[in-house]
């Protein structure tokens, strides 16, 4: 069977499976990214807090998760929640290991990891704000909420966009690691195909191509969004 038959959409081709798996990769990455955005907002807010304990917690969170391999975090989330679920199942008479849902634990794990990166990005965006413009807002009678909504948020969002785009690309690539806990996303599907056809190169290269397609397309989308939001920003920066 040649490559195009192998990856084709006929009955014995793998095209459908690979496409479905690509969809799964995008889905799990997207959920992970969303979780990371929430953690990032919380982390950044904590890092600017007046409470010493919150600032410390934010620093510990980013330091730990940027220094520990993602694979370990995925293991922790998967086997950690599995052991909890197994414990509960044992109460109902089940014996042995019950696996946690891979999609959920995987998305959560890469979400928590990317949240640490996101914290840095959002923090940097707030620090990049022009202090004079924020001060002008205060001088014109804006309360903290209005100031945040009308001045800080729109400007910080603009500064954050490139970094946020980077984090999305990272999450996309990290999602491949979720294959180790059995979620049938692109990487896992390629393993399955490679195993049953003995054509590993074809499958992994196809997977690589599909990843490249996603990162390229989303990179273009972010670039477009950046161009739109850069209106009014100082030229040449």
């Amino acid at each position: 069977m040649d490559y195009f038959q192998l990856m084709g959409f006929s009955a014995d081709g793998w095209g459908h499976d690979m496409l479905r798996a690509t969809g799964m990769t995008v889905a799990v990455a997207f959920i992970g990214f969303a979780v990371g955005l929430i953690f990032g907002c919380l982390g950044a807010a904590a890092s600017f807090s007046n409470a010493h304990a919150l600032r410390l917690a934010a620093a510990a969170y980013t330091t730990a998760l940027r220094g520990i391999p993602d694979l370990l975090v995925i293991y922790l989330f998967y086997f950690g929640s599995s052991s909890v679920i197994s414990g509960i199942a044992a109460l109902f008479g089940s014996q042995g290991f019950v696996g946690a849902p891979a999609f959920l634990t995987g998305a959560l794990a890469i979400g928590v990891v990317s949240g640490a990166n996101q914290t840095q990005v959002l923090r940097g965006a707030v620090l990049a704000l022009n202090k004079g413009e924020v001060e002008a807002g205060r001088a014109y009678g804006m309360g903290p909420l209005l100031l945040f909504r009308r001045i800080i948020l729109p400007q910080a969002a603009r500064y954050a966009l490139p970094g946020v785009g980077n984090v999305w690309q990272l999450v996309m690539k990290e999602s491949a690691l979720i294959s180790v806990i059995g979620l049938v996303e692109l990487m896992r599907q390629a393993q399955v195909g490679a195993g049953s056809t003995r054509q590993p190169f074809s499958f992994y290269l196809t997977a690589a191509g599909l990843y490249l397609l996603i990162t390229f397309a989303s990179g273009q989308a972010f670039r477009l969004a950046e161009a739109r939001t850069m209106r009014g920003l100082r030229r040449g920066i």
Partner: peptide, 21 residues
């Protein structure tokens, strides 16, 4: 572009499993 746009895991698998094809 190619190496930054794909997961490291895929790169490892291509070299370790893929080349044996």
């Amino acid at each position: 572009f190619a190496f930054r746009g794909t997961p490291l895991l895929v790169q490892i698998y291509i070299i370790y499993y893929g080349l044996s094809q």
